[in-house]
Design a protein around this nucleic acid. Structure first.
Lengths: 191, 191
DNA sequence: TGTACATCAGTGAACGCGCGTTCACTGATGTAC
DNA sequence: TGTACATCAGTGAACGCGCGTTCACTGATGTAC
């Protein structure tokens, strides 16, 4: 084991510990010493890798963006939001993204409440998501409001629903209900 | 000025100062000494009225519940959610409630991120809201999912929309867009 | 290949800042007689 | 109505806890010769 490997290992262990703690007790309630303890390292070790808890979160965010090539999959499929299947695909992929990165998303939301910088980052993330599928709305003839507003409502439901434990709903049921609600809301047609 | 009046005055001033600060810099970023400074009192004065910042928030919450007889108005109107006007009425009254109590609602949301107790209180508040209009759904024949799920989606959009600065949207435009989206989502009919 | 030194990841006790909370004190209001 | 004492709202300096952050130290890995 050489030095770089060792450092990378510790950094990875710290990140993993942080994610675990963020998921259980939340970002704001997690102390740096909690993270190092959970990771089985000394407190001082943290600062070899991150200047602060914020910076660690930024690293998690960067990881997420790297993986976040949900986009790659998106290219393969229909942008026609007048088709329920297209709506479902987006709902499902966004839902899956949220579930998979629940810890980081929760941390990001909490950090946004306290830190102006993260508030901007989070808002940028949402805007980016929306921009990516903005053109999908051009297939819809009877939107409920301005395109930006319509998109915002679509994401508002999914987001809020994913944030909550969303009750005791199974993933498929949540996706199905969201798809119907959103499809109808956007198109003004039954489904 | 007798003693009770004086104390009540100070308490009111503290609450008002707290609300102002919560609205601008948020609950979590507001220190107790910030509140007393904003209120023009000494730091120690705070503890004559509240045992902690949490308790102050509970007091604000109690005030809100007392005023929150949005319900009173609700009795006067139609529970038939197959009628767009009925949906609009609820959207508008909930929207108005949020705007009016934005500071307290924001504080409550932030406190929920950090404090288990407030998380329960907030969740109870939502459940209560939903329970109040649960029967309105019986007028709807083609719900997008289980009634609880459908209601949850309805509130999810409004909530999330109200929380954001909701962009640069005027109140009426937001209400109109939400009404259409939700009416369609619930009923599967155009409007 | 071996030796001497440099560098680096990790350690954990100690330091110190921010802020919640306390408390002795003040002056005003209330009460007893 | 007046005097003496009690109580209370408010004050602000001081205290102390929690936790982020530092830093001298250790042992291992890397480098020079």
């Amino acid at each position: 084991v050489n030095r770089k490997e060792r450092a990378a290992e510790t950094e990875a262990v710290l990140k993993a510990a942080a994610k675990r703690l963020f998921a259980t007790r939340g970002y704001l309630n997690t102390k740096i010493t909690d993270i190092t303890a959970e990771a089985g390292r000394a407190a001082g070790s943290f600062y070899n890798h991150f200047a602060s808890k914020e910076e660690l979160l930024e690293a998690l965010l960067a990881d997420l963006a790297a993986v976040g090539d949900t986009n790659a999959r998106r290219d393969e499929h229909s942008p026609d939001f007048s088709d329920p299947a297209a709506v479902r695909f987006h709902v499902a992929s966004y839902w899956g993204f949220y579930r998979e990165h629940a810890a980081t998303m929760l941390a990001l939301r909490q950090a946004s409440m306290v830190n102006e910088d993260f508030a901007r980052k989070l808002s940028a993330f949402y805007k980016e998501q929306m921009a990516e599928i903005f053109d999908h709305l051009s297939y819809v003839t009877r939107l409920p409001g301005k395109p930006e507003t319509s998109l915002a409502m679509m994401y508002a439901v999914i987001d809020n629903f994913a944030q909550m434990g969303q009750g005791e709903l199974a993933d498929e049921d949540a996706i199905e209900a969201l798809t119907r609600f959103i499809y109808r809301g956007l198109n003004g047609l039954d489904y």
